[in-house]
Design a protein around this nucleic acid. Structure first.
Lengths: 105, 105
DNA sequence: TTGACATGTCGTGACATCACGAGATAATGG
DNA sequence: CCATTATCTCGTGATGTCACGACATGTCAA
């Protein structure tokens, strides 16, 4: 009943690692959040600037940014009444380049 | 009230392109489906083989595979009673390498 | 202090995703 | 045919995601 075994060595990765990867990809998998990543890879921006660029209300942008801060993608500093966000996760650059190569070019 | 404009040229990408990218990333963002991508980047496998490796019932695996076939990630060929799946989207390789570099190594 | 501005928080309802079980379809061998 | 194996399909209920409005917090300038 069994067939010939697949002789190719199976790639690695614990179930927990796949779960974490899926979690983070799910956070990345939103058009507004993708746009935020792309912008923040090119500089610092405030909540209001990001919101206006993406065409969403400020509080919506704020919630997206909070999400991405919680999983380590972004960090923020308050300067006066504004809050500037920037990229904190170095792998985001290469990951975004892959996404741009496939979908945005 | 206005601050100095951000002189950095803004990166490209239509809203529709971001929406499509987010759609595909969302499909990728599942631990079982990530594992399927990883395995299929190393060879051809049947539904049953993939299901057993991932520890999910066959029908669940079948639904995941159908999803990834619909968005162009995989293709399938029937051989007897078995159905073999393989990678169809060339960018998946580089994308998975990014994910592995960040989460699986 | 007051008022305006920038951001953050919370509750809610609409909608999507998910795993599961039951059953359908397809192919093989006796 | 009939039984078995492999895959697929469908309905359902649980859970998660999302945008929105209302409101809270924080900051500054007059």
């Amino acid at each position: 009943m069994n067939m010939k075994p697949n002789l190719v060595p199976k790639p690695t990765g614990s179930p927990a690692a796949f779960a974490e990867a899926a979690e983070c990809l799910k956070i990345l998998a939103h058009p507004v959040r993708l746009r935020f990543v792309q912008l923040l890879l090119h500089g610092r921006f405030t909540v209001g600037e990001l919101a206006e660029d993406a065409g969403v209300p400020d509080n919506v942008a704020s919630e997206h940014l909070r999400l991405m801060q919680r999983c380590g993608f972004f960090t923020s500093q308050r300067e006066g009444r504004r809050v500037y966000y920037q990229v904190a996760e170095p792998h985001l650059k290469q990951l975004m380049e892959c996404v741009e190569a496939r979908f945005l070019h």
